[in-house]
Amino acid sequence: MSLARRIIPCLDTDGARVVKGVQFVGLRDAGDPAELAARYNREGADELIVLDIAAARDQRPTFLETIRRVAKQLAIPLTAGGGIREFEDGRAVVEAGADKVTVNTAAVERPQLLTELAAAFGSQAVVLAVDAKRVDNRWEVFVCGGRQATGREAVAWAQEGVARGVGEILLTSIDRDGTRAGFDCELTAAVARAVSVPVIASGGANRPEDFLAVFTTGEADAALAASIFHDHRQPIAALKQFLAARGVPVRLSR
């Protein structure tokens, strides 16, 4: 009896449709979010994350409608975010049916936002998304879709988020994102050891071995991937069987 490591498909959307592209370049349509959500719910995903990567202010109602449509399909937890600028954006996402809200750029600009969201919805409902890139001998936090350096160090920023009440860290390696080179286990372990909350590893997923590595040497509590699941390259059930056979606790029965 132990807490299972989670497998989490991620739907990057332009607000309405799932899109795909390497580091926000060359986006192409990858399907309807509600249809994909229903499929992952059926195939044994442990949770789902839906992001609005365009995060255009005038498209907000569209994204909220997407969250509502996705939530209807799920009997598993849903995290949503992208473009969460202020408290009311977070509330809107929760009210649309997300169990957790993920915050990235706005938290760096105004860390108090994390405190406010955690006070209102509880720590278990607030996820700090940290996009990190190796710069010299440390990992630096980048915002605005990975385009803007912040000067903040990733491990310390994750710790500050936890001190402010976030219940989970969604940690993306910008270096690995879209490369299919495997998760950045070194980065993931550095953050996972430094914080008391669960860490979701993201960026670089390709083979089942990558998941095994991030759950063992990377010490991740959960692992996220997008295209390998959307493209049917990696069935979730087979991935979980692979992990279970190697001693990683995963939820096999649905």
Partner: peptide
């Protein structure tokens, strides 16, 4: 208790 990841977040089994 401290010493485990908190919140207890995710899928677990029962006894």
């Amino acid at each position: 208790p401290a010493g485990v990841k908190l919140p207890h977040m995710g899928w677990n089994q029962l006894r």
